[in-house]
Amino acid sequence: MRRFVGIVLMLVAVIALVIGTGLAFLLGTDNRTATGPHKIETSAPVVVTSPDVLGWAGPSITLTVDVADGQEVFVGAANAVDVADYVGTVRRTEITDYRPPWKIETEDVFGEDILPADPETLDWWVARGSGTGTATMSVELPEQAFALVVIAVGGGDLEGMRVTAAYDLDGGFGIGLGLVGFAIGLGLFGWIAFQGRPMTRYEELQEDEEGAYEQQGERR
């Protein structure tokens, strides 16, 4: 039984070590990992993520979008219900699947080229950014159904759009190191359990006495 517990503890320790090392290595001391720039094939004025694409909550992401020089661009994040109503009638490219670090599937949806309102005038954005030629936005992915949107403002389209995504995990490097330390401790504990518990001085004496009695018995 003791050996079995030891093996299990060491297995858990190995998993924690791999995760901790990977996390610390991936995020580095700035708690951030980035991917890109990646080109998205589109000729639409809007690129939007489908609601089920961002099925995870917790991490903060920073999106930097680069478009043609002189093109005004807006990047925003909001509840998927707001976004669906806003871009529902507009010609757009929808990102229907995403796998980290960067593998996407897209679908072009037909519609009008004009948005019903200037995105800057809307009050339901959770995060947003805008600029000419490039725009950056940071947001922590919330529990609610969420969508990210990139919009070519003032006419034009997003042809040639490139996206750089950075994932931030507050304290991620520390968590990684903590997991490594935890794994080392757990591994040692498991090793001790696997080897067998060290004997105390009392147990050694008892064993010696038992040995002496056995020798006396043999003589008799």
């Binding site: 503890l9 089920d52 099925g55 909550a57 991490p59 159904a145 968590i175 903590g178 997991l179």
Partner: peptide, 29 residues
Amino acid sequence: RLGVAVLASAVLVGGCSIPHPKDSDGVTK
């Protein structure tokens, strides 16, 4: 003691903004 240590670690890690699947309220607001 080991059990307590594992539990404490799980709570510590869970309390941070570790990526996790969203709740199941669907596309609602």
